[in-house]
């Protein structure tokens, strides 16, 4: 059961990463990246690294996303 969950999450990660790489809209790329970070945090929790999960959730999903959003709002949203 848990293995299935893990596999699903890992597949999700890969899909997220691919979507981030392919999408032309930077905003959606950033949102996907936030989702990616959050799932990554859960995976780490599954791997018995709660410290890291916590930090990744706060840092990767939180701070990085906000920073990226701020920068996008200051520059441009689409990839040319």
């Amino acid at each position: 059961m848990l293995t299935a969950l893990n596999v699903m999450m890992l597949v999700f990660l890969v899909v997220c990463a691919v979507v981030v790489a392919r999408s032309n809209d930077l905003l959606s790329a950033v949102i996907m990246f936030a989702a990616y970070s959050l799932v990554m945090a859960i995976v780490w929790q599954q791997l018995e690294a709660p410290d890291l999960a916590l930090t990744e959730a706060a840092m990767g999903a939180g701070v990085t996303t906000i920073l990226l959003l701020v920068v996008i709002s200051k520059t441009r949203r689409t990839e040319e």
Binding site: A17, A29, V30, F33, S37, L68, V71, I72, E79
Partner: peptide, 9 residues
């Protein structure tokens, strides 16, 4: 920005 996201990934 894509480069930076790639870096994070």
């Amino acid at each position: 920005i894509k480069k930076i996201i790639g870096m994070n990934i």
